[in-house]
Amino acid sequence: MDRVPILKIGDVLLVSIQGDLDDQSVLTLQEDLAERVVATGAVGVIIDITAVEIVDSFVGRMLSTIAGMSRMLDAETIVVGMRPAVAITLVELGLSLGGLRTALDLEKGIALLGRTASAPLDDLSAVGQ
């Protein structure tokens, strides 16, 4: 796999990782995502890792890096669909991914973003009018 597609739904960017990532595509994804956040002015990034079965510390750190990067650009990152085996591996590796928000599936992730992000946005649009 060379490039991970980044989809835009409203104010949210959706990254769905299909299959296991190698180190190069992880780095490419980080750069692409930062560019897209700036270009679209997204308020949220959802990373769907339902299809990821194997993680190492590098992928674990990627999630933290993306979360930190997006926060700098004023977008919130939510990781959704983590498998039990992946969660256990990350805990055993000692990566608690502090500051990263998670949800069970994509639907709950979008709902979580909606709860936190939509309220201030509505206020802003009201000010604009």
Partner: peptide, 12 residues
């Protein structure tokens, strides 16, 4: 603590 952390990572 490990169990709680793992559940948290999954979004629960």
């Amino acid at each position: 603590l490990k169990t709680v952390m793992a559940a948290r990572l999954m979004g629960a």
